[in-house]
Protein backbone atom coordinates (compact mmCIF):
# COMPACT_ATOMS: atom_id res chain seq x y z
CA UNK A 1 0.00 0.00 0.00
CA UNK A 2 1.55 3.23 -1.10
CA UNK A 3 1.54 6.48 0.82
CA UNK A 4 -1.12 7.94 -1.46
CA UNK A 5 -3.47 5.09 -0.69
CA UNK A 6 -2.91 5.43 3.04
CA UNK A 7 -3.74 9.14 2.85
CA UNK A 8 -6.82 8.37 0.75
CA UNK A 9 -8.11 5.83 3.26
CA UNK A 10 -7.53 8.30 6.09
CA UNK A 11 -9.47 10.99 4.19
CA UNK A 12 -12.36 8.59 3.55
CA UNK A 13 -12.47 7.66 7.24
CA UNK A 14 -12.40 11.33 8.19
CA UNK A 15 -15.34 12.06 5.89
CA UNK A 16 -17.41 9.12 7.12
CA UNK A 17 -16.72 9.59 10.83
CA UNK A 18 -17.17 13.33 10.54
CA UNK A 19 -20.58 12.90 8.93
CA UNK A 20 -21.67 10.51 11.67
CA UNK A 21 -20.31 12.80 14.35
CA UNK A 22 -22.06 15.81 12.86
CA UNK A 23 -25.35 13.98 13.14
CA UNK A 24 -24.94 12.05 16.38
CA UNK A 25 -22.96 14.32 18.69
CA UNK A 26 -24.87 15.79 21.58
CA UNK A 27 -23.55 19.32 21.58
CA UNK A 28 -24.21 21.58 18.62
CA UNK A 29 -20.77 23.14 18.61
CA UNK A 30 -19.19 19.68 18.34
CA UNK A 31 -21.57 18.94 15.48
CA UNK A 32 -20.34 22.04 13.67
CA UNK A 33 -16.71 21.04 14.16
CA UNK A 34 -17.42 17.54 12.86
CA UNK A 35 -19.15 19.12 9.86
CA UNK A 36 -16.05 21.22 9.20
CA UNK A 37 -13.95 18.05 9.35
CA UNK A 38 -16.22 16.39 6.79
CA UNK A 39 -16.09 19.38 4.46
CA UNK A 40 -12.29 19.50 4.61
CA UNK A 41 -12.16 15.79 3.88
CA UNK A 42 -14.36 16.27 0.85
CA UNK A 43 -11.91 18.92 -0.32
CA UNK A 44 -9.22 16.25 -0.11
CA UNK A 45 -11.40 13.87 -2.11
CA UNK A 46 -11.77 16.54 -4.79
CA UNK A 47 -7.98 16.65 -5.06
CA UNK A 48 -7.93 12.88 -5.53
CA UNK A 49 -10.59 13.32 -8.24
CA UNK A 50 -8.15 15.66 -10.02
CA UNK A 51 -10.32 18.73 -9.65
CA UNK A 52 -8.11 21.10 -7.64
CA UNK A 53 -10.25 24.13 -8.48
CA UNK A 54 -13.25 22.56 -6.79
CA UNK A 55 -11.12 21.59 -3.80
CA UNK A 56 -10.10 25.22 -3.43
CA UNK A 57 -13.69 26.39 -3.77
CA UNK A 58 -14.81 23.80 -1.24
CA UNK A 59 -12.34 25.05 1.32
CA UNK A 60 -13.06 28.71 0.57
CA UNK A 61 -16.84 28.52 0.55
CA UNK A 62 -17.68 25.71 2.92
CA UNK A 63 -14.85 25.86 5.44
CA UNK A 64 -14.37 29.59 5.18
CA UNK A 65 -17.83 31.05 4.79
CA UNK A 66 -20.40 28.46 5.81
CA UNK A 67 -18.38 27.09 8.71
CA UNK A 68 -17.68 30.48 10.22
CA UNK A 69 -21.35 31.44 9.82
CA UNK A 70 -22.48 28.26 11.55
CA UNK A 71 -20.05 28.74 14.43
CA UNK A 72 -21.24 32.32 14.89
CA UNK A 73 -24.85 31.19 14.84
CA UNK A 74 -24.28 28.44 17.41
CA UNK A 75 -22.47 30.86 19.69
CA UNK A 76 -25.10 33.58 19.28
CA UNK A 77 -28.07 31.26 19.70
CA UNK A 78 -27.67 30.70 23.39
CA UNK A 79 -24.88 29.30 25.51
CA UNK A 80 -23.46 26.36 23.65
CA UNK A 81 -22.94 24.22 26.72
CA UNK A 82 -26.69 24.10 27.17
CA UNK A 83 -27.75 20.79 25.71
CA UNK A 84 -30.84 20.96 23.54
CA UNK A 85 -33.60 18.49 24.10
CA UNK A 86 -33.13 15.24 22.25
CA UNK A 87 -35.51 12.61 21.06
CA UNK A 88 -36.10 9.43 23.01
CA UNK A 89 -33.90 6.35 22.54
CA UNK A 90 -36.62 4.33 20.82
CA UNK A 91 -37.18 6.91 18.12
CA UNK A 92 -33.43 7.31 17.72
CA UNK A 93 -33.04 3.58 17.18
CA UNK A 94 -35.91 3.39 14.70
CA UNK A 95 -34.59 6.38 12.75
CA UNK A 96 -31.05 5.00 12.62
CA UNK A 97 -32.23 1.57 11.54
CA UNK A 98 -34.52 2.98 8.86
CA UNK A 99 -31.90 5.27 7.42
CA UNK A 100 -29.20 2.61 7.37
CA UNK A 101 -31.60 0.24 5.61
CA UNK A 102 -32.43 2.97 3.09
CA UNK A 103 -28.76 3.67 2.43
CA UNK A 104 -28.00 -0.02 2.00
CA UNK A 105 -30.85 -0.48 -0.50
CA UNK A 106 -29.83 2.68 -2.36
CA UNK A 107 -26.22 1.63 -2.63
CA UNK A 108 -26.98 -1.92 -3.59
CA UNK A 109 -29.66 -1.21 -6.18
CA UNK A 110 -28.16 1.81 -7.84
CA UNK A 111 -24.51 0.99 -7.79
CA UNK A 112 -24.45 -2.79 -8.04
CA UNK A 113 -27.29 -3.55 -10.39
CA UNK A 114 -26.51 -0.91 -12.94
CA UNK A 115 -23.77 -1.35 -15.53
CA UNK A 116 -21.71 1.76 -14.91
CA UNK A 117 -19.18 2.29 -17.65
CA UNK A 118 -16.01 4.01 -16.58
CA UNK A 119 -14.92 6.27 -19.39
CA UNK A 120 -11.42 7.43 -20.21
CA UNK A 121 -10.09 9.93 -17.74
CA UNK A 122 -9.17 13.23 -19.30
CA UNK A 123 -7.47 16.23 -17.83
CA UNK A 124 -9.75 19.00 -16.63
CA UNK A 125 -8.42 22.53 -16.57
CA UNK A 126 -9.95 25.48 -14.80
CA UNK A 127 -10.29 27.45 -18.01
CA UNK A 128 -12.64 24.77 -19.33
CA UNK A 129 -14.84 25.22 -16.27
CA UNK A 130 -14.97 28.98 -16.79
CA UNK A 131 -15.74 28.56 -20.46
CA UNK A 132 -18.51 26.07 -19.70
CA UNK A 133 -20.05 28.46 -17.17
CA UNK A 134 -20.04 31.38 -19.59
CA UNK A 135 -20.84 29.48 -22.78
CA UNK A 136 -23.33 26.83 -21.75
CA UNK A 137 -24.83 27.98 -18.46
CA UNK A 138 -24.80 31.78 -18.45
CA UNK A 139 -28.46 31.96 -17.40
CA UNK A 140 -27.98 29.72 -14.38
CA UNK A 141 -24.85 31.67 -13.46
CA UNK A 142 -26.73 34.97 -13.51
CA UNK A 143 -29.58 33.42 -11.55
CA UNK A 144 -27.14 32.29 -8.87
CA UNK A 145 -25.78 35.80 -8.54
CA UNK A 146 -29.32 37.16 -8.32
CA UNK A 147 -30.10 34.58 -5.64
CA UNK A 148 -27.07 35.61 -3.62
CA UNK A 149 -28.01 39.29 -3.84
CA UNK A 150 -31.56 38.45 -2.75
CA UNK A 151 -30.30 36.39 0.18
CA UNK A 152 -27.97 39.20 1.29
CA UNK A 153 -30.88 41.65 1.22
CA UNK A 154 -33.04 39.15 3.09
CA UNK A 155 -30.38 38.65 5.76
CA UNK A 156 -30.12 42.42 6.22
CA UNK A 157 -33.88 42.66 6.50
CA UNK A 158 -33.94 39.91 9.13
CA UNK A 159 -31.21 41.69 11.08
CA UNK A 160 -33.20 44.93 11.04
CA UNK A 161 -36.32 43.06 12.13
CA UNK A 162 -34.54 41.39 15.03
CA UNK A 163 -33.23 44.76 16.21
CA UNK A 164 -36.73 46.19 16.39
CA UNK A 165 -37.81 43.63 18.96
CA UNK A 166 -40.89 41.44 18.96
CA UNK A 167 -43.97 42.92 17.35
CA UNK A 168 -47.03 43.62 19.42
CA UNK A 169 -49.54 40.82 19.50
CA UNK A 170 -52.31 41.25 17.02
CA UNK A 171 -55.77 41.73 18.38
CA UNK A 172 -58.08 38.95 17.46
Amino acid sequence: MSLGEVIFVVICLVVALGALGAVLSNSLIYAVFFLLLTMGGIGGLYIYLKTPFLAMMQILIYLGAVGVLLIFAVMLAGPFWRRPKERGPFLKGVAGLGVSLLSFILFWRVLRHHPWEVGPQGEVSTSRIGRAILDRYPFAFELISLLIVASILGAIMLGVLSRQGPPKAEED
Binding site: T51, F53, L54, M57, Q58, I61, Y62, A65, V66, L69, L70, F72, A73, L76, A77, V124, I129, A132, I133, R136, Y137, A140, F141, I144, L147, I148, A150, S151, I152, G154, A155, L158, G159, L161, S162
Partner: peptide
Amino acid sequence: GQVFTLFVMGVAASEVAIALGIVLL
Protein backbone atom coordinates in the same frame (compact mmCIF):
# COMPACT_ATOMS: atom_id res chain seq x y z
CA GLY B 1 -20.73 18.11 -13.20
CA GLN B 2 -18.11 20.45 -11.80
CA VAL B 3 -20.06 23.50 -12.97
CA PHE B 4 -23.16 22.21 -11.23
CA THR B 5 -21.17 21.53 -8.08
CA LEU B 6 -20.17 25.18 -8.12
CA PHE B 7 -23.84 26.11 -8.44
CA VAL B 8 -24.67 23.83 -5.51
CA MET B 9 -22.03 25.62 -3.45
CA GLY B 10 -23.52 29.01 -4.29
CA VAL B 11 -27.02 27.87 -3.39
CA ALA B 12 -25.74 26.36 -0.14
CA ALA B 13 -23.96 29.54 0.86
CA SER B 14 -26.97 31.79 0.26
CA GLU B 15 -29.26 29.27 1.95
CA VAL B 16 -27.09 29.19 5.05
CA ALA B 17 -27.01 32.99 5.22
CA ILE B 18 -30.76 33.35 5.06
CA ALA B 19 -31.47 30.39 7.35
CA LEU B 20 -29.13 31.68 10.02
CA GLY B 21 -30.85 35.05 9.91
CA ILE B 22 -34.18 33.33 10.47
CA VAL B 23 -32.79 31.15 13.27
CA LEU B 24 -31.29 34.10 15.12
CA LEU B 25 -34.48 36.12 14.73
